[in-house]
Design a protein around this nucleic acid. Structure first.
Length: 380
DNA sequence: GTTCTAGAAC
DNA sequence: GTTCTAGAAC
């Protein structure tokens, strides 16, 4: 018990939690372990919106388990990853998730420093904020966080790294979730978007694609604007992801400014797929986005419709690629061109629980093994 | 997003 | 008894 206490105390002494504004409107805010911190319409957060209460949210970090409990105190809605937070009830916020302070505005994220991988640190600016417990330690007033490494920017000319297109196999043991390398976006001085400006070295699983974009085992092609990677867990014989190099967390953040980028991504997708279909004309592909993606960097799937893969295991996998949860890329482009934005599809997550049925003949399937056997032979 | 596993389904 | 799934943990 005493040993456990020491371990926990050591963790508490070393792991620090911060709230960071995605728009860099104010300095990062320390969230000391287990100390409720109230945020809202205060000069420190640079929020003057009358719809935001002065005490909109109460944040309590758990540095051991690397999450923050968020309780909404204000009358108007706040959101975690687009989901409304129930009033006076604690909701869990994890690294990489978006916290909108009020009515979908004022995006923030939390991150933790002080883990074993941290090697370099920097001084934090600590704004004065109202807290329920003012017992901040001295260390909280001069907190250090890891400095991000700089890497070379890729060449402007398209670069094909692994041109041999073959059905995907289980890739190397190197994990997508090796978060110790920074995103390529971090070294791009031009055109910074969203949280690129001062993003911390996130380690939450939802940030894994940013590491994957740098993994030579996964990257198959890149150019000035995009990176093509093999899906680490392909759900079909051929399954790639195409990601923009600029930080765009999801399709909901797209604007008309991104239409050319989306068209380019789709064009590259067709080119990749045609390398297969030139040799095997019977292979069908779809190109599209999940209605609500789990992984943070926006990505378009290029996926063959055989769904023959050992990584395809669950109902959620199946329904995410064979129901309207999978949105064809031209539909997203068309929405941007006609509506100026991408539809909110959060309610579509219920599609993931739909009963299983064959995507070709529509025949209901009892379970995943039955479905997998059926689609091996079903052609219509 | 994946892995793990308890308990439901068979 | 084994297989399968959903939810928690990461």
């Amino acid at each position: 018990m005493r040993i456990l206490y020491r371990i926990l105390k050591m963790a508490n002494d070393t792991i620090k939690c911060y709230l960071e504004c995605c728009k860099s409107s104010h300095p990062k805010l320390p969230l000391p372990h287990n100390v409720p911190v109230i945020i809202g319409r205060t000069p420190e957060l640079c929020i003057t919106d009358k719809l935001c209460s002065r005490s909109q949210l109460e944040l309590t970090s758990n540095c051991y388990k690397r999450y923050v409990l968020v309780k909404r105190l204000g009358a108007n809605q706040s959101q975690i990853n687009g989901i409304d937070i129930e009033r006076n009830k604690s909701s869990r916020l994890e690294e990489g998730q978006d916290l909108h302070v009020v009515n979908g505005k004022y995006p923030h994220r939390v991150y933790f420093t002080g883990c074993q991988n941290d090697t370099k640190t920097e001084k934090a600016v600590v704004p004065k904020l109202p807290t329920k417990n003012t017992d901040l330690t001295k260390s909280d007033l001069s907190i250090k966080q890891p400095e991000r490494k700089k890497i070379k920017v890729s060449e402007n000319k398209p670069k094909v790294l692994n041109t041999k297109i073959k059905p995907q196999e289980k890739s190397s043991s190197k994990s997508v979730y090796a978060f110790d390398s920074p995103s390529p976006m971090s070294s791009r001085s031009e055109k910074k978007t969203e949280s690129t400006k001062s993003a911390p070295a996130h380690k939450h699983w939802s940030q894994g694609l940013k590491s994957a974009m740098e993994d030579p085992e996964l990257v198959v092609q890149e150019d000035e604007h995009i990176v093509v990677i093999k899906d680490k867990y392909p759900k079909a014989k051929y399954h790639w992801l195409i990601l923009p190099k600029d930080s765009i967390s999801s399709t909901k953040n797209l604007s008309t400014d991104n239409i050319e980028l989306l068209k380019h991504i789709l064009k590259v997708g067709h080119e990749i797929a045609s390398e297969v279909t030139d040799q095997q004309p019977d292979v069908e592909f779809r190109f599209g986005y999940h209605a609500v993606a789990s992984m943070s960097q926006m990505h378009m799937h290029v996926i063959s419709q055989d769904f023959q893969s050992s990584s395809f295991k669950t109902k959620k996998h199946w329904n995410s690629f064979t129901t309207d949860y999978f949105v064809d890329a031209p539909d997203i482009i068309n929405e941007l061109e006609t509506e100026g934005k991408v539809k909110d599809r959060r309610t579509m997550t219920s599609l993931l629980n739909q009963p299983l049925k064959c995507h070709r003949c529509k025949k209901p399937q009892k379970n995943i093994p039955t479905l997998k056997k059926h689609i091996e032979s079903c052609q219509k």
